[in-house]
Write a protein that binds this DNA or RNA. Structure first.
Lengths: 238, 238
DNA sequence: CGATCCCATTGATATAAGTCAACACCTACG
DNA sequence: CGTAGGTGTTGACTTATATCAATGGGATCG
């Protein structure tokens, strides 16, 4: 491991939400056992069914966590960017990885072996608490996703997703899709074709303006209204 | 609190997976602060948006965790039976409950205040580990659910669900739906009408035999084969 | 014992979203 | 600079599943 690598790992890990509450001494221990790895665009960090080596933190680049069907279709669960982590829920169980982790760009990930985390839980209760909070948040996000795909229509999911990319507050906002439209479509839960059409529909209604991956949310009020209104003609108040 | 209640609470809690690893002394503490509550069929234990009082354990009865859309539709996330718990992911965040928890039968739940759990995490690292493992398992289950509804067809989901109710191994098995078909349908992610039709299809193919809530899995081999085969004509090997 | 409610089934019809296929880009690379 | 591979758009068509509506049990209860 190079010295530069060492500093990079340390900087990344100390700023990770999971380790935020952990004692300094313990963090040094974590850093000592962590190792960095670079993966080039398109390469798999971990494939469905394989054993997970530990917790992964993205230093730079972008990683896609996805499920793949027997046909060619795939469902993207999460896009993991710099400063984010994945694999928490897997290292603590003796089960194989349930998803594919693919680098969407040349990336660097830092790997913290599971054993280190287990030891840390024993020694540092604040870290344990942080890990629990982290897992809980991840669960909430997943539940929100299930809610979205189970009881919202395609347009609504697209609108909600675009909104989620923007900071709340302003009446307008410009956002940039973090990946190709094909990937985003799989994230939202539609095919690339319908995504394209839905995006055009929103543009036709003057709600957004699309140019490549850059999208301007022209009327966020109507956009969020779209999300909350019922997909089907609302059954008058009961 | 009656003495009978006290013993019931103790018996329930000591057998909960989450507390399995915790030290005896700490468990006594938990039991002291827990309280039992009975809810009658149809009543809400906790509604979407409300504050969660703590961790819930079902002593007897059946509880439905569900999301509801603006229209009348709902998605059932989980059916929680005796000896199972819910609310882990909520107590550790300051967020309101994301789901509705409704008793499907006259039930008794034991409530462990969040503060007690937080304290326990500090004192007992084995409990912390148990909680983390529990959350991880819950996540895996959820991911499996997402996988199911995202890239499997209706029949496949039904077949998979029926299989999940049976102990693995035997060539045949008889299972009983834990709730009304309407609820099971919402759990699987189809309407009650399509559930009915799909069930009949399976029966017509000689895969199952249905009589009220009792279902006999006649040919589990073909049933599981159905689940794994691709929903669309498989694109020949590439 | 009839009335009522809830649950399930079935048929007819509607529709959102997927599929198939063609084409237009754009970037990259030899 | 022309060819090629990944990406996105658009159109015509198909289909799984929802929706609407009607009916038939069981239960439960006064």
């Amino acid at each position: 491991m190079t010295a530069a690598n060492g500093r990079l790992i340390e900087g990344l890990i100390t700023n990770l939400p999971i380790f935020r509450q952990a004692a300094r001494v313990h963090l040094d221990e974590v850093v000592r056992h962590a190792r960095a790895e670079t993966v080039s665009r398109g390469a798999a960090i971990c494939r469905h069914g394989e054993r997970m080596e530990g917790l992964f933190a993205v230093a730079y680049g972008l990683v896609k966590l996805a499920l793949r069907g027997d046909a060619g279709d795939e469902k993207v669960l999460r896009l993991v960017g710099p400063g984010e982590t994945f694999g928490e829920a897997v290292v603590f169980l003796e089960r194989p990885c349930p998803v594919d982790a693919i680098a969407l760009a040349d990336s660097m990930v830092v790997i913290v072996p599971g054993a280190v985390l287990l030891a840390l839980i024993e020694r540092d209760s604040r870290f344990a608490r942080g890990m629990i909070a982290s897992l809980s948040q991840r669960m909430h996000a997943l539940v929100a996703d299930v809610e979205s795909s189970a009881l919202r229509s395609g347009v609504q999911r697209v609108a909600a997703y675009l909104e989620s990319l923007a900071e709340p507050g302003a009446a307008q906002a410009k956002v940039r899709l973090p990946a190709t439209k094909t990937v985003i479509a799989a994230r939202i839960g539609v095919t690339k074709e319908t995504f394209s059409r839905l995006l055009r529909d929103l543009a036709d209604q003057g709600l957004v303006s699309v140019s490549k991956r850059d999208i301007v949310l022209l009327d966020r009020e109507r956009l969020t209204a779209l999300v909350q209104s019922s997909p089907k003609p609302a059954p008058s108040t009961t």
